[in-house]
């Protein structure tokens, strides 16, 4: 299996450990990821805030680049915001030819043309639908028994396009958590919003959403995410949320490939837990005690 890999801007910076662990995971699974040539920003939620056309043209540029590499291919996207932006173009041009025409007018300025032949896939979609669970199980060398993991999906890999999971009651991560030997922390907040860019533009509203999620996960050993924006919001504002709610939230927010990587016995350099902002001593201790070869 081969995918064109679109890391997106966050995975080059604040979410570098997501990219590193993703590449290590897929290498372990024997799946080839080929980075998209000369990829550019998808527009995130910013493009939509200022220009309707650019919010389509920016992701479209990457789809056009992928078509140039291989006319029919799947693009694997780990970031949920990037995923949705690319998906929106893929879906939008299907029945709106005037949109496609306008997009191509813009792309012409960069000598590119979009036809609409490549498919955008979220990392989680690929892991649950293209990779056999047995193949993942066969790579597990250390059981994460005793760990209770809260699966957190966020919004944009689930909505508005219900491609691979229930958009309100998602469960796709559960089999991956249990195959790693951990148990699924029971909560119903996996598809709730983390506040996204409100943490910067309206923090007084954003912090409430972050706090509700941290409160909901009290009792879990870690929250596992598949989105760099969710990860950052939940990880970076724990002190602030604790202060406002007169409590003490301290929970690691891992990327799904980091969790699987731990169970697969990948090296520290492949998982890069040291890059996460919040890994409490108690979590490290539990890891050290649990991670005996199975």
């Amino acid at each position: 299996m081969t995918y064109i890999y679109y890391p997106g801007c966050s995975l080059e910076g604040t979410a570098a450990e997501y990219s590193i662990s993703t590449m290590a995971l897929f290498e372990t699974l024997g799946i080839e990821l080929i980075e998209l040539d000369d990829w550019t920003c998808c527009g995130a939620t910013a493009a939509e805030g200022v220009s309707h056309l650019l919010s389509f043209a920016l992701p479209a540029r990457n789809l056009a680049m992928a078509e140039k590499m291989k006319a029919k291919s799947d693009i694997l996207v780990p970031c949920s915001a990037c995923y949705l932006n690319l998906k929106r173009v893929e879906q939008g041009i299907k029945d709106d030819h005037s949109l496609l025409r306008k997009i191509n007018q813009v792309l012409e300025a960069d000598d590119l043309v979009l036809k609409g032949t490549v498919r955008t896939r979220h990392l989680l979609d690929v892991l649950v639908n293209d990779v056999a669970l047995d193949d993942i199980a066969s790579k597990i060398v250390r059981s994460l028994e005793g760990f209770s993991i809260a699966p957190y999906y966020g919004c944009q890999c689930l909505r508005p396009y219900a491609v691979f999971d229930d958009p309100e009651a998602p469960r796709s991560m559960e089999s991956l958590i249990t195959v790693a030997g951990a148990s699924v922390y029971p909560w119903d907040m996996g598809g709730r919003c983390c506040g996204a860019s409100l943490m910067s533009t309206a923090p007084e509203a954003g912090i409430e959403l972050v706090a509700a999620l941290l409160e909901g996960a009290q009792g879990a050993d870690a929250i596992v995410t598949v989105c760099p924006m969710c990860q950052m919001n939940l990880e970076a504002y724990q002190k602030k949320a604790s202060k406002q709610h007169h409590t003490h939230y301290e929970v690691p927010i891992l990327y799904l490939p980091q969790l699987l990587g731990l169970a697969m016995g990948l090296t520290d350099d492949q998982i890069r837990l040291d890059m996460n902002l919040c890994v409490p001593g108690s979590f490290r201790e539990k890891l050290a005690n649990t991670l005996q070869p199975a």
Binding site: E48, R159, P160, R192, C193, G195, L198
Partner: peptide, 14 residues
């Protein structure tokens, strides 16, 4: 400020 507080979670759309 209502629309500026939309965090694009798409729950309403859904």
């Amino acid at each position: 400020r209502t629309f500026a507080l939309c965090s694009t979670c798409y729950t309403c759309t859904l």
